[in-house]
Design a protein around this nucleic acid. Structure first.
Lengths: 189, 189
DNA sequence: CATCTAATTTGATTGTAATCTAATTAGATA
DNA sequence: TATCTAATTAGATTACAATCAAATTAGATG
């Protein structure tokens, strides 16, 4: 179940007029003018809402002479309403920043010689770069400030800024001048 | 279950960021900065979304030192997700135009002597007034045009306009100069 | 009590959504 | 094929929602 489908379903029925339409159609099919009358709206407005509801497949229509009757697809409604309960867990994390996206961003910010061009201003990108920069260091080991600096200098001369960013973004912490990586749960990514 | 609650629930979770938050919290509580990092957004934006989610009661929070952890209320989420399946039917019709509302509108448009002040421009109000005006006539009987006119003249001198409205809004139909009320299912109210 | 960290509020900006009137289209029927 | 009815589309207006940077608040801790 894709995220966008679920979002779109809820966005669509998160509207007073459309929920009223759904409620009315539970008693049986109705045509546009009837809906317009009952809801105190004009036919174009009903058309607009019907289109949205048809897009998420909770209504369908049957024509009788000049009149189109709109029917509720209750099965679909039920299925989609329950979808939010299934979604998520670890899978979503990968949805949020896919490996492919990370790869692109890393490629953009590093030169071919492995040097970091500059520190991204955008938060998300910055985190991806920091996560990448920290890869050579090990969880559990204690580092002296000088060691951290040397490690960072491989990639960028402004080690002070990057070291500060490591702390601020919870990748590592400092205790009386010594540094240690935080457990991955604390990382913001 | 009130309509507004259901609408508000779906409006709130009909947003990509908020569904991602819900999905992330299914794996366990997280604090604001972690959410901001994982989603590539700033803390104020997370606050904004958390507030919305708290309003519909699907998240709650526990503080640990300086950090507030946000928890998902899965029971509530499930209950609200299924609420749309219960709503509706005949009850909703009365929600749409309550008797109280009808009473008010009728009072506004009629004088004490029982005369109609004017024909409402707003569609919904017009339908309520027309429904009220038609009450003296019987389903199943055939009326001559003159009879219809006399009936309407009790309330308003412009019988021609009102007679036309009766037809246009499906309260009655004309067949070679004779008039008959339509069955109530055809009325737009 | 001074200071730090995390969260929230404020104000501004930008994009999206709901509704209407007027014009158009699609079928049905005479 | 001309005409009627119902539905839809187009265009404009207005209201609302998501986001951020900057300022503020609320607890925790030295």
């Amino acid at each position: 179940m894709q995220l966008d489908r679920v979002v779109n379903f809820h966005k669509t029925i998160g509207d007073k007029t459309r929920i009223k339409i759904i409620a009315l159609l539970k008693d049986g099919p109705l045509h546009g003018q009837a809906l317009a009358g009952k809801l105190g709206l004009t036919p174009p407005t009903i058309s607009y809402h019907i289109t949205k509801l048809r897009e998420i497949d909770v209504i369908y229509q049957r024509r009788d002479k000049n009149t189109i009757y709109f029917h509720l697809n209750e099965k679909k409604l039920e299925f989609m309403a329950k979808a939010i309960l299934e979604i998520g867990g670890e899978k979503v994390e990968s949805l949020i920043v896919s490996d492919e996206e990370k790869y692109k961003i890393i490629n953009n910010f590093f030169n071919n010689d492995g040097k970091l061009k500059n520190i991204p201003a955008q938060r998300k990108k910055k985190l991806i770069i920091l996560e990448h920069l920290i890869k050579g260091l090990k969880v559990g080991r204690i580092y002296q400030e000088k060691e951290i600096n040397e490690h960072i200098k491989q990639f960028h001369e402004d080690y002070a800024t990057i070291r500060r960013e490591f702390i601020m973004c919870h990748f590592m912490n400092r205790q009386n001048g010594e540094y240690e990586l935080n457990p991955k749960e604390m990382w913001l990514i």
